[in-house]
Write a protein that binds this DNA or RNA. Structure first.
Lengths: 337, 337
DNA sequence: ATAGGTTGTCGAAGCGCTTCGACACTTTCT
DNA sequence: AGAAAGTGTCGAAGCGCTTCGACAACCTAT
């Protein structure tokens, strides 16, 4: 293992000079810098992370807490994680992967031990147990998701309220009057993650303004659950012609069942999904959808943290404006054609 | 920030005694131990990770290199990552998330800086650039996947050869003679990740023994690509009654297209998939499948590393025996009924 | 020519922990 | 009873780095 001191000796300078070449915190003459850099290369020097962390009280690590569940939104989570890791590297940070399993203890452990300089939390609940801890520390953090009380916190999320509104507007413009919303599994609502409710609220209030009828049904993923849900919907509102789906694992079953019942998409029935683009484009019908901007959220989270660690930036809540992409699953309402 | 010294003072012992209470590396009397533990609790002490790493040259971190691609096997990757993180915590390790992006440089950086004590590599190619580096260091590592040359390496993977054989045996037992294999996208084969080829080899050689005909077609995911592929298959081998699919994003399109063509599953055509259980059970037909044991691989990788770091364990290649679960997508061949 | 300001480099202290050898004390064996 | 072995604790060194103050050496303005 090559040390700073060896590099210094090799280059004929003092250790501190090498350190300053590395960090750029003091000016170094061109000649010295080149000599040192040359030595670093020749010796294959890598600064020791532990020593660095100890001396500078900076680990250059960002902790990312992902949910333990692997049953929901997996691609989104993964995409966020990758975006976080990639962006972090761009800024000289590494990423520590924590699972939600440990809960608040993980937060305590990480902040207490100086393992990480900052944290990103995913899968935030409305009254998340970890929030008081975050407020009580001076370690920067970003939530991906929106808790009930955001005072003193930085959050980023898709504007799900606007997303709901956008979906219903699109359907309204096409002449649909009876809208069914197929939501996440009941468990998601019970967990109070918030995003599902926000979508619904946004959607309902816009629907009221536009004078549309909305029927909301939570739904487990899979074909069997979807079949039951769909039957109930058409039973209660036979005139339903517009669907908004916010449940990845219900998308394909819905399309299959509609097809099976002889309801053509988009001729008889229109479907708008709230899902990652990949799901929307790989479905059996290319879906009109509002994308979940996973990459953008991950990137934003890291960049905000880096700014804060550099002494810039402040607390804020950023809601990303939804974008609706029209594909092949929505069209004029049958009565309007 | 509470330090070891403060704990020591509070408990009325020396710093080294506290350290030994924490590590258990020397015997400590019950009374002292309790006093120290009490102080730790009262002060809310957390050992500083950097100092610890520096003094002990152990970071208690395991690096996990995940592929950058988010287009393939995402749920499997995620499941492995979660299993790795969970198992690591059980053994007192944290997990550093690296993306494949940096390639061999990441390996150099991590081993050089002592950021991590060990590494787990996913998405290993047959002649992976990172292998020479791993062989040239004394830092333990585990590959999830199988390169061409495994000398001096520890690897864990599903036994894809046996998997292929198992699929074809199952179909043979049901009386199918003409088997079509729908593989990964051509890019996967070109990348030489090995697993796809191994499945195919195992499948083909067993098919030869059982006197079956096999037609292999790589396939991009999605409906359009699948439609083309399927048409070609039935064109070339109209008598095909058995399918083996090793491509998550081809599964649902295949089922939909078969249905659309009036070929009932499993009455007219049987389908065996190689995919995570979640995909198999959530598909429109509950699929007979060989599961990809993501959790098991993740857990094994960590446990092997921990053993190695503790001075136990040695290099070895572990191939996990495939298990075929019969569900609703396979049945007797039509001619045999 | 001299005070004042820059610029580039160095030495030393110290970050918080682990670990080694030493040492006092107790127990066990002959 | 004395030597040998085991127990529990301490002090000090040192892990590899950052950072602060000091200080030559040089440049500019007067």
């Amino acid at each position: 293992m090559v040390t700073l001191a060896e590099v210094a000796q090799h280059a004929g300078v003092s250790a501190s000079t090498v350190s300053y070449v590395l960090s750029g915190k003091r000016s170094i003459s061109g000649a010295t810098r080149q000599r040192v850099e040359q030595s670093i290369r020749e010796l294959g020097y890598h600064p020791n992370a532990g020593a660095r962390a100890l001396a500078s009280s900076r680990s250059n690590i960002i902790a990312l807490m992902v949910p333990l569940r692997t049953d929901m939104y997996v691609p989104v989570m993964m995409e966020i994680a990758i975006a976080v890791a990639t962006t972090a590297r761009l800024h000289g940070y590494d990423v520590l992967l924590l699972t939600g399993e440990e809960g608040p203890d993980a937060v305590r452990r990480v902040t207490g031990s100086g393992l990480a300089d900052a944290m990103i939390l995913m899968d935030v609940e409305l009254a998340d147990e970890r929030l008081p801890l975050l407020r009580g520390t001076d370690q920067p953090s970003v939530l991906i998701g929106l808790p009930a009380d955001t005072t003193g916190l930085t959050c980023v999320d898709l504007d799900f309220g606007a997303t709901g509104a956008l979906c219903v507007e699109h359907l309204a413009k096409l002449g649909h009057h009876d809208i069914a919303v197929i939501g996440e599994a009941p468990a998601v609502y019970e967990r109070h993650t918030g995003f599902a409710e926000r979508t619904l609220d946004g959607l309902r209030s816009r629907a009221r303004e536009l004078d549309l009828r909305v029927l909301h049904r939570p739904c487990e993923g899979g074909y069997d659950a979807m079949a039951v849900t769909l039957a109930r919907i058409f039973d209660e509102r036979p005139g339903t012609t517009g669907f908004v789906v916010q449940n990845e694992s219900a998308v394909e079953p819905l399309l299959a069942l509609l097809r099976q019942q002889g309801r053509a998409v988009p001729e008889d029935v229109s479907v708008v999904a709230v899902c990652p683009d990949q799901v929307a484009t790989q479905a059996s019908v290319r879906l009109t959808s509002v994308a979940i901007p996973a990459q953008e959220m991950g990137r934003y989270a890291v960049e905000h943290l880096v700014a804060k660690l550099d002494g810039r930036g402040s607390d804020e809540v950023v809601l990303i404006a939804p974008e609706l992409t029209v594909r092949a699953s929505t069209g004029p309402a049958p009565s309007a054609s």
